[in-house]
Simulated assay, not measured.
Amino acid sequence: MEEILRLFTDDIKQAVISKVENRWDKLQEIRIRLYQPLEIAFDENTEWIETVKPNKKDGIFLLNQMSQFSLYRMEDELREGYITIEGGHRVGIAGKVNTAQGHVKALQYITFFNIRIAKQLTGISSGILPHLYNRSNNNYFNTLFIGAPQTGKTTLIRDVARVIGTGWKHTPPKKVGVIDERSEIAASIKGVPQHNLGLRTDIMDACPKAEGMMMMIRSMSPDVLIIDEIGSTQDVQALMEAIHAGVQICCTIHGQSMDELNKRPSLHDLLRNDVFDRYVLLSKRQTPGHVKSIYNGSRQLIWG
């Protein structure tokens, strides 16, 4: 975990090493709030480090390490509220916001950091892939993955991209296009993905989803588009255009249940037109990406 430890001054680094010990594989987040104890979130519980309370100097050091002493080059990421670092880890940031004409211009006085540990879990989609593949036409069903925060939606869809783009059993690989608006799926740095997304997978990194979908279709002619966290009206319109262009889609959305989706105004067109052939509902367990149930296009339970 050198990519993580290099972010800290020596006293914080030693405190984190002592707290985590041999539990790096269970580590989910390290939350740093200036002048407050450190919060360490594991799969099964949350623990605190009371012995160190980061100060302004520690925060500046962390920012410099994240940006490699060149914050001005990361203005877009800072405005979005996160920076992706080597290894695919993502550091969320918060503080005082500067606005211009009602829009976020920049983050100033950054005093809160959330280091989310990237975990590539290969093979976690193998149990559900047969339910997402239509053998009658040798293509994938349009699929929506539904889950609350921290249920592992991104982890699961990352593995789905890898398997579809590489092939599995007697199923040949497909051309996959990933629209990675927040650099979470591939965790690309300078355009190079830090995670394995498959042999035939192309990635549009840090691009707005609605624009990126059509750009990817025009430039790379994918068989399957993979998008994380849809929700806006623009996302829905772009998805409809992609489907009319003959592309299959796999995407995720925040939600607790199937009923909750019906209450989302932006999704009415997708649901009314039966765009999705499969709905995959995730549940929060210690293992990310745990699938609770799968429904068909008529929202009838077919697995789980």
Rank of each mutant, 00 (worst) to 15 (best):
I189M: 12
R90S: 06
F112T: 13
I85G: 07
D180C: 05
F141W: 14
N134S: 12
I85K: 05
H170N: 14
H131Y: 15
A100F: 15
K96W: 07
R116A: 08
K105W: 13
V178K: 10
I146T: 09
T143G: 12
L129D: 08
R135W: 01
K190C: 03
G92W: 10
T154D: 02
F112E: 13
D159T: 03
L129H: 10
T151N: 04
A161N: 02
N196P: 01
V97D: 13
V91R: 08
L156F: 03
P149Q: 01
R158H: 00
T154A: 06
K175T: 05
N138I: 03
A161G: 08
H170E: 14
T84W: 07
V178A: 04
V192G: 00
E77T: 02
I85W: 09
I185F: 07
L199N: 01
R158A: 00
I185W: 07
I85F: 11
L78D: 09
I146Q: 09
T171F: 06
V163E: 13
V176G: 06
K96R: 14
T84H: 09
T166Y: 02
N98F: 06
T155W: 02
A100R: 15
F141D: 02
L144K: 02
K96H: 13
G177D: 00
I164C: 07
Y133L: 07
N137V: 15
A100W: 14
T122W: 02
G177R: 04
T151C: 11
S125A: 14
T166L: 03
L78F: 15
S136R: 14
G191L: 01
E184N: 12
I157S: 00
L156H: 03
T84F: 10
A118Y: 12
A100T: 13
T154Q: 04
G191P: 01
S183V: 08
E77N: 12
I110R: 07
I179R: 11
A100Y: 15
T154V: 03
R135A: 09
T111W: 04
V192E: 06
G88E: 00
L129E: 08
S125E: 04
G81Q: 10
L144N: 05
I179K: 11
F145E: 01
